[in-house]
């Protein structure tokens, strides 16, 4: 469920079909730079009602999903 929401938000941000976004996709492969990543993290915070501290650099979609899972737990 978390992955689906992340993929949906990434899809909207990049204007691509969310079903084409895989967990192992890197932000670089999605052509997202560090500034884009911050924007996406903020959208996800709103979507999940959490605060995400970007202590560690995020590389892949899965990194982001794990971070949200940990916050929601």
């Amino acid at each position: 469920m978390i992955f689906e929401t992340v993929a949906k938000i990434l899809g909207e941000y990049k204007d691509v079909d969310p079903s084409t976004i895989t967990a192992d996709a890197t932000f670089a492969s999605l052509e997202l730079d560090s500034l884009d990543t911050v924007e996406i993290v903020m959208s996800l915070e709103d979507a999940f009602g959490i605060e995400i501290d970007m202590e560690q650099p995020l590389q892949t979609v899965e990194d982001l999903v794990k971070l949200i899972e940990a916050k929601k737990a």
Binding site: L35, V38, E39, V41, M42, M54
Partner: peptide
Amino acid sequence: VPSTGIAKM
């Protein structure tokens, strides 16, 4: 900060 997102964070 180079963007509003980074500024908010």
